[in-house]
Each structure stands twice: as structure tokens, then as C-alpha cells.
């Protein structure tokens, strides 16, 4: 937990350009290596929150999402600690794989996917309120990362296919997000326009279909890549729309 920022943080202008493969490495604020278990995920998100707030301020677009994501992950950890829940392997691993995708995408090093670049590009714009940032983050994370994380979890756990048990765990993650989003929207009052509740509600079934489709393509790597790329483009489109005031209202 000693890796510190090696370069000064970039302002909005120094942010990564949108688009795959052209991403400029972000300042690395993550603990060395990616988390391996749920405790590790919570710790990594906590640390990331500190770094984001310190470097970009509490109103930073990504920090707004990370704050919510941290709460979601703590809830999932509580779910896993519950003795009554059996067969936790999958949910625990899914939580880790899901978080690793986010941390890799936003934590610097790798190229930034378009869906995240949309948020990072405008993270410091004062005209966008925190709830909107959080919603855009959820959109990016759930739409872009959840389906591939489910597929990867099935693959590394040797599951024969994403079935009912996997679907239940997938839903647990998705529903935890939805719950926190509702709370957030409830707190923020009527000021929020109707667009904010669209993406996740929409995502639940759509994303599971996406899981099944990706699973079918997992033995065809280039086809899989193309599908992920298309997913990234679609998600970025939604994110951009949500960040543009009035675009969808």
C-alpha cells in the first residue's frame, strides 16, 4: 500500500482523450496489484476514493461514482458474510473480477475504454451535478464491465455455462446498484430529471442477454473483442447523452 502518485494529476485538459488505444496513463493511485478478494476490493476502492478526492476534489466526477461503488461493494461484502448464503464462490469472484475491470480502466496504465473516457473527460465540469456523474459511472460500469466479468468468472471457476445460480448472483450485484441509485435519486430530490433512472433499470435483462451472447462467443476471440468494442461504443453514447443536459429529456 505504498505506491504513491508519481506524477501530478492532470486537470480536465490533461485528461485522457476519448478512444481506445490512445489513453494516456492516469496517475497510479492504486495499491500495487489488483485485489484478489472482496476485502481487497473494498480496501482498493477506499484508497482510490482518498486519492481521487485529494487530487481532484470531492466534486470530481469519478469520485462521485467511486463513492457509490464503495457503498455497493460494502453491501456485497455483508451479503457474503451472511452465513445463510451458500455457494458464495461465484458472487465473491464476480465482485472481484468486476472491480478489477473498473480499477484497470480508471486507475491508469491500460488504455481507457470510451465508456469511461466520457466521464473522465468531463470529470471537472462544474455544471454537472454529482448525481449525474454517479449515474454515468454506473452506466459505464454495469453496461460495459458486468457482462464480461460474469463471463470471466464462469471461465476461471470452470462453470459449464452461466445458469440460474450465476444469474442469481449477477442479479444480486445489479440489484444492489439499483437500490443505491434509487436512494441517491431519492435524496437528491426532484431536481434530477427523469433520465437518471433509465440506464440501470434498462440494464438488468439487457445485460444478462449480453452475458449469454458473450458466453457463446468466448471461443471466438476476435469476434468477442469486436462485441466488447461495440458494447463500449454503445455505452459511451449513452454516457455522453446523460452528461449533456437535456439531451434525453
Amino acid at each position: 500500500m505504498t505506491t504513491m502518485i508519481e506524477r501530478p494529476p492532470g486537470g480536465p485538459d490533461a485528461g485522457p482523450p476519448s478512444g481506445r488505444g490512445r489513453g494516456v496513463a492516469l496517475p497510479t493511485g492504486l495499491p500495487s496489484g489488483l485485489p484478489d478478494d472482496v476485502d481487497g476490493v473494498v480496501a482498493a476502492l477506499e484508497r482510490w476514493q482518498e486519492v481521487l478526492e485529494r487530487d481532484h476534489g470531492v466534486r470530481d466526477g469519478l469520485a462521485c461514482f467511486n463513492r457509490l461503488y464503495l457503498r455497493v461493494t460494502r453491501d456485497i461484502r455483508a451479503l457474503l458474510d451472511d452465513e445463510e448464503v451458500c455457494g458464495k464462490d461465484f458472487l465473491a469472484r464476480l465482485d472481484v473480477e468486476f472491480a478489477r475491470r473498473y480499477l484497470r480502466a480508471t486507475g491508469g496504465g491500460a488504455a481507457v475504454p470510451r465508456a469511461w473516457a466520457v466521464l473522465l473527460d468531463r470529470r471537472a465540469e462544474p455544471g454537472i451535478d454529482p448525481v449525474r456523474f454517479a449515474v454515468v459511472g454506473i452506466t459505464a460500469h454495469v453496461n460495459l464491465d458486468l457482462a464480461p466479468a460474469v463471463v470471466r468468472t464462469c471461465t476461471v471457476l470452470g462453470r459449464s455455462a452461466p445458469g440460474p445460480a450465476e444469474r442469481a448472483d449477477y442479479r444480486a450485484v445489479n440489484d444492489t446498484f439499483a437500490r443505491h441509485l434509487d436512494t441517491l435519486l431519492g435524496q437528491s430530490g426532484p431536481r434530477c430529471d427523469a433520465v437518471t433512472d433509465v440506464p440501470v433499470v434498462l440494464a438488468r435483462e439487457v445485460t444478462w442477454r449480453q452475458v449469454l451472447q458473450l458466453w457463446e462467443q468466448r471461443s471466438r476471440p476476435t469476434e468477442y473483442e469486436r462485441e466488447i468494442d461495440a458494447l463500449d461504443r454503445r455505452t459511451a453514447l449513452i454516457g455522453r447523452g446523460l452528461l449533456t443536459l437535456g439531451a434525453l429529456t
Binding site: R152, T155, P221
Partner: peptide, 11 residues
């Protein structure tokens, strides 16, 4: 199990 082999190596 060629599908799993391919998927694992891709991952």
C-alpha cells in the same frame, strides 16, 4: 474442452 481452453487463454 476446446472452448474453455480458448476462453481461458484469451482471458
Amino acid at each position: 474442452d476446446h472452448d474453455s481452453a480458448v476462453a481461458l487463454l484469451s482471458e
